[in-house]
Design a protein around this nucleic acid. Structure first.
Lengths: 210, 210
DNA sequence: ATCCATTGCGCAATCG
DNA sequence: CCGATTGCGCAATGGA
């Protein structure tokens, strides 16, 4: 049932273009995170399901990308929309960050601008990752492979969740069954005990005395 | 612990820019969908969890966006990478589709080029949605609200899944407990029965006969 | 008609 | 280096 198309609004050209926004966005702004349910803490230690093995991870990845170069005088509190057209070139796009909320409690420039060089990582690799050309064949191959992996992983997760759900249901039914059986047995036992109570023990010796 | 920043590869300007790709992408190409687990059908009728109320939805949204204007002579089988730079303007971006795989079993142009006008939808609304300026304040507000809702919904789902998991565990333990109790009762009952079997019923009449 | 809730998807970071 | 996970934002859609 795949290969469905929603609308296809714009020009529908056939380009990769890969424009994106994820690596940025302050996310969880005052307005957002403090709001909903358990408020803070959110999806912290909440493992998605039984999660066969991994259960810790880091749950942090691309959060505040646009932390730097924040308009010092952000808009009013609660929202920091900026009508800037675009600062990165067509190739260097992505990471456009929504910069929700806008201002932190403290100037964000104080944070370490360049990621502190983690020991053990080859500079080459870093550059290779960061300088990766979005139009490169290798990049697209990587993306496609990852997309496949993601879909697979999510299907798996869905199945796992569904199984857990079914198991819970079956266990509940089994529980009812067992509880009923226990009631039955208990009743039977009571009856038997009552029956015996009415006829005190009568040993063979006693019987002989008759 | 939010407000973390990953790397900030590019220029890190503070723009919304909203470049994105989702609405397109053929997705689930020969290579992808046929591959993983249950292959086709995938996450079809698999409700994420117990899903309090909604359980049908349509599970289809933006799948084959770049179906049209596919390069007739796609690359080889298995991958359809295209090194096109970008075709949409900075404002009309998003929906760039990866057009994985490339060619369908049949020329995709045969599909209805313009989305068939769904009866019941006002043209105004369509335009309002599709022509939405990515730089508009309203758009950003909508996006941010939705992002908040999405985070909330996902937190909820995580909690629900976790609860189901816990419930299954508790039920399993309860089951063991009940099963043990049943064994006990059954044994006791057997003992009692055996005891009675060895002393045939003795009515009062019989007793009097002694 | 507007708003929130869900859901599938692709991206990037990270884990194994 | 590669696949598996995971958090995130986007867009479509369901539902009130």
């Amino acid at each position: 049932m795949y290969q469905k198309q929603p609308h296809l609004s714009g020009p529908q050209c056939s380009v990769i273009q890969g424009g994106y926004t994820s690596p940025a966005s302050l996310s969880y702004s005052v307005l957002s995170h403090a709001g909903p349910s358990t408020a803070m803490g959110g999806h912290m230690g909440v493992t998605p399901e039984s999660v066969p093995s991994s259960a810790s991870h880091s749950q942090m990845s691309q959060e505040a990308g646009g932390l730097y170069c924040q308009p010092v005088g952000a808009q009013g509190p609660g929202m920091a929309y900026m009508a800037a057209p675009a600062c990165s070139t067509s190739t260097g796009d992505h990471q456009s960050q929504q910069n929700h909320m806008g201002q932190q409690d403290f100037p964000s420039f104080l944070l370490p601008p360049p990621p502190p060089p983690p020991p053990g990582l080859h500079h080459r690799q870093q550059v290779a990752k960061k300088g990766m050309n979005k139009d490169s064949m290798e990049y697209r191959l990587r993306r496609e492979r990852n997309n496949v992996a993601v879909r697979k992983s999510r299907d798996k997760a869905r199945r796992r969740i569904q199984l857990t759900q079914q198991r819970a249901l079956q266990l509940q039914q089994e529980n009812q069954r067992l509880q009923l059986l226990i009631e039955q047995l208990t009743h039977e036992l009571d009856t038997l005990r009552h029956f015996l109570a009415q006829r005190p023990l009568r040993s063979k010796a006693e019987e002989e005395s008759c």
